[in-house]
Amino acid sequence: MYQAKLPDESVNIPTTHPLVGLIKYTSIMGIFLIVLYFVLILSIDIIASNITPVQEKKIAKTLSFDTMGDSKKSLYLESISKKINKCANLPYGVNIRYIKQKEPNAFAVMGGTIYVTSGLLDMLDSENELAFVVGHEVGHFKNKDHLKQMGYGFVLSIISSIISNGDDYSMQSLFGFAQSKYSQKAEFNADKTGLDLLVCSYGNASDASKLFKKMDKDSSDWEYFGSSHPSFKDRIKSIENRIKENHYDISTKPLPLKKI
């Protein structure tokens, strides 16, 4: 005898709330990724601190960067880096390359090469400012930040590829956020080293923060939230604090920039 029956909903419909599953799985994933992230970052720090200059040169040879620009400017830059390098005691020489690019920027790459853009040079008024920029980048070399940064980029790419497999691009930006704290710290440290090197090779700290003051005018504070670099205001503050603490001389007139 046929008897009509409604479907039994307890069989095929899950009883747990969807949010419970969301919290459960995201926390497992989150904990796993955070642990992985810190383990990798820590090992990068250890590896970067222990890489010898010879090994670094070898690795740098496998990477190629475009070099261009005019030789006169490069020579001038080179002379400044030599002055700075006398104080820095780096185990290798520093090369400076000049790039034609509007965006004011300077960066350090493996193998002791610093790149300075024409946009940055155009903003400068004195040699001291330039020496501070070079000092800052040399500071990155001293602290092995260039190696660490490369390693961190590698770690981030590993983690983001794990995540993108799970189709979740949000965590990528979360880890980028965590990353920014480390890299901002590195920038402050490089600023300090840059300042010390400027004082060591030029005898005074005049114009050390002048470039940042100029750049600060063109930027707004919120840009730096989660960014790899701290805000110019904070960097200026940190530089001026160090000048006060160490009683660096800022009354001497800064050397004029050679116009080439």
Partner: peptide, 14 residues
């Protein structure tokens, strides 16, 4: 999103 999360560990995609 839930499915992609479960996809990493295995288990039923409720």
């Amino acid at each position: 999103f839930m499915a992609s999360l479960v996809n990493l560990f295995g288990g039923s995609i409720e």
